[in-house]
């Protein structure tokens, strides 16, 4: 399920977290879908199981997945909503960037166009 980029310098556990977020947002992992076991992922990418566990713990603590005792992890029903709420908090980053662009004399149209392109790129 996960494809690891060994050359990009991003730690494996972070890549797994990010990919899971993407899968959730795009419906590839719908609510209540089972997560692959730590063991399966570790063996598949030949990575330290503790690393995988770290990723899963992150997802668990954010409420993106829940654990059914003895059965493993599953995507929670509220996962998409949680991710949306987390991302919304970063809207003020956009505001700050816009202010930076303005003070550097970058045309507002160019900024708006970039927003358009990003928005229409969503699937």
């Amino acid at each position: 399920m996960f494809t690891i980029d060994n050359l990009c310098g991003v730690p494996v556990y972070e890549q797994i977290v990010r990919q899971t977020e993407t899968f959730i947002l795009r419906g590839i992992l719908p609510p209540d879908a089972p997560m692959p076991s730590v063991r399966a992922v570790a063996t598949q990418i030949a990575a330290n199981p503790n690393t995988i566990q770290k990723a899963y713990t992150n997802l668990l603590s954010r409420g993106l997945i829940y654990a059914a005792p003895g059965k493993g992890g599953f995507v929670s029903a509220e996962a998409k909503g949680i991710l949306r709420a987390e991302l919304e908090k970063q809207l003020d980053t956009v505001e700050r960037l816009a202010a930076q662009f303005a003070s550097a004399g970058i045309d507002k149209q160019a900024v708006l166009q970039a927003v358009e392109r990003g928005d229409s790129g969503k699937s």
Binding site: V38, R39, A42, T43, A46, A47, N48, P49, I52
Partner: peptide
């Protein structure tokens, strides 16, 4: 090497 790693990692996880 890769295969040995897979086996070890599996034993750690299992």
């Amino acid at each position: 090497r890769h295969h040995m790693r897979e086996i070890m990692v599996d034993a750690v996880a299992e």
